[in-house]
Simulated assay, not measured.
Amino acid sequence: MTVDTEALHAELIEWVRSWNEDESTAEVDLDTPLLASGLLDSMGMVAFVSHLEERTGKPFDFSTYMPGPTASIRTLLDHCLGR
């Protein structure tokens, strides 16, 4: 499966905004730390990674990457895509 990363970037940013129902004032871009900024909590991170897996058609390997407070859309997507 080929992934159009430009379109996916915009979609993932929108997904994070939607998860927060636009109630967060934190800026959302590819490098925003999702947990540290409060944009996602642990449940949100699980839902986000699940969405990544669905959209990319690739499994997220938690044995080689454990999302921490500084995980961003870019780092999570790159890991999922094997970059």
Score class of each variant (00 low, 15 high):
Met1Ile: 05
Thr2Ala: 07
Asp4Asn: 14
Asp4Cys: 13
Thr5Cys: 03
Glu6Gln: 05
Ala7Glu: 11
Leu8Met: 13
His9Asn: 13
Ala10Ser: 11
Ile13Ala: 03
Ile13Gln: 11
Glu14Lys: 09
Val16Leu: 10
Val16His: 07
Ser18Asn: 10
Ser18Tyr: 04
Glu21Asn: 08
Asp22Ser: 01
Glu23Ser: 15
Ala26Lys: 02
Glu27Met: 00
Val28Phe: 03
Asp31Tyr: 03
Thr32Glu: 03
Thr32Arg: 01
Leu34Asn: 06
Ala36Lys: 11
Ser37Asp: 01
Leu39Tyr: 05
Asp41Gln: 14
Ser42Asp: 04
Ser42Lys: 04
Ser42Pro: 00
Met43Asn: 02
Met43Asp: 09
Val46Leu: 14
Val46Phe: 06
Ala47Gly: 13
Phe48Ile: 15
Phe48Pro: 09
Ser50Met: 13
His51Asp: 08
Leu52Cys: 06
Leu52Gly: 05
Glu53Gln: 15
Glu54Leu: 05
Thr56Val: 05
Thr56Cys: 04
Thr56Phe: 12
Gly57Ser: 01
Gly57Trp: 02
Gly57Gln: 05
Lys58Gly: 03
Lys58Trp: 06
Pro59Tyr: 04
Phe60Tyr: 06
Asp61Arg: 14
Phe62Gln: 11
Thr64Asn: 05
Tyr65Leu: 07
Tyr65His: 12
Met66Gln: 10
Thr70Asp: 15
Ser72Lys: 00
Ser72Ala: 00
Asp78Pro: 00
Asp78Lys: 00
Leu81Asp: 07
